[in-house]
Simulated assay, not measured.
Amino acid sequence: MTQTETSSLAPDAEGLARAAEILRGGGLVAFPTETVYGLGADACNDRAVAAIYEAKGRPSFNPLIAHFPSAEAAQAYVQWSDAADMVAAAFWPGPLTLVLPLRAGCGISRLVTAGLETLAVRVPAAPLARDLLERVGGPVAAPSANRSGQISPTRPEHVLAGLSGRIDAVVNAGRCDVGLESTILGLAGRPTLMRPGGIPREALEKALGRRVAERREAEAIAAPGQMASHYAPRAGMRLNAAEWQPGETRLGFGKVDCDLNLSRAGDLTEAAANLFEYLHRLDAEGAEVIAVSPVPHVGLGVAINDRLSRAAAPRD
């Protein structure tokens, strides 16, 4: 692809105005949400969306999330429902993506939906992100701002390490608060957890007043983040390591002797916020094999283990 100079924009009115101008003009801008940095493009512009796939090296069958400044803005592009109302009222703005039937004639690029008849929509909690989306005045497709399959970025320097020269600009606003992508809830049929994330399944079930099904791995990809190998560092990985082996770099959880600890206090929220940054750090330090302590498979631990299992999956 053609190399371009990637601008670093300040997180102020002038920087956001310039970022919105670039997006409306068909360019690519990385911007922070409360979860990770997203790589934004006009979701109604086929060429702009195609540029996301090119910059990331992303498989074309993996759908993208469309970001909006409000639930009302999102409703113009999807067929809304009572269930969507319930969870949006509880968790939007926030780290929750809803997959709903696409509204006919809404103008969303088919590259965003990867040819599906559904659209993944989200209203981010970060005020800066919503400010930018308001300035753009239309949906912004924004997967994580990293090369496809690599570790998701929680800082602007992570974005630049993978995408400098491949995108037009990054809004430099420091570290993201959550550090783990959004939960994806499918609402095109029975409520289905399509990707665990910052909002646990139990909280969704409480808001809906009913059980949320889980997607089976054998099912076709129907939402972002469902590739088997994803979030992968260059190093090999060994999960659920109760003991360390010679030559391994040790990524711990809880009160263990290790090289880097996701949360010595055993706090899953802290571990989620640190996960991608620590994988980046160990990768940059030249780790050959990263051994990871067991992480409890409850609450946010489900999402953490999902990311770790994808990071450790066989690579093509």
Rank of each mutant, 00 (worst) to 15 (best):
R234K: 14
R234E: 14
A235K: 06
G236L: 06
G236D: 08
M237E: 02
R238C: 01
R238S: 06
L239K: 01
L239D: 00
N240W: 15
A241K: 06
A242Q: 08
A242H: 13
Q245C: 08
P246H: 04
G247L: 07
E248R: 12
T249W: 08
L251R: 09
L251A: 07
F253S: 05
G254E: 11
K255W: 06
V256H: 08
C258F: 05
D259C: 11
D259Q: 13
L260Q: 15
L260R: 15
L260H: 10
N261R: 12
N261E: 04
N261D: 11
N261K: 10
N261V: 10
L262M: 07
R264V: 07
A265Q: 15
A265P: 12
G266I: 09
D267K: 12
D267S: 12
L268R: 02
L268M: 13
T269L: 03
T269H: 05
E270H: 08
E270G: 06
A271I: 10
A271S: 14
A271V: 12
A273E: 06
A273R: 13
N274I: 05
N274M: 12
L275F: 06
L275Y: 03
F276M: 15
F276V: 02
F276S: 01
F276L: 05
E277N: 10
E277P: 10
E277V: 05
Y278I: 02
Y278P: 01
Y278W: 11
L279S: 07
L279Y: 04
L282I: 10
L282Q: 05
L282W: 03
D283C: 13
D283G: 11
D283Y: 15
A284Q: 12
E285M: 15
G286N: 08
A287P: 15
A287M: 12
E288F: 04
V289K: 07
I290M: 10
V292S: 00
S293Q: 11
P294E: 11
P294D: 10
V295N: 01
H297R: 09
H297F: 14
V298S: 11
G299R: 04
L300V: 02
L300P: 00
A303K: 00
I304Q: 00
D306A: 01
D306R: 01
L308R: 04
L308N: 02
S309V: 01
S309F: 09
R310M: 01
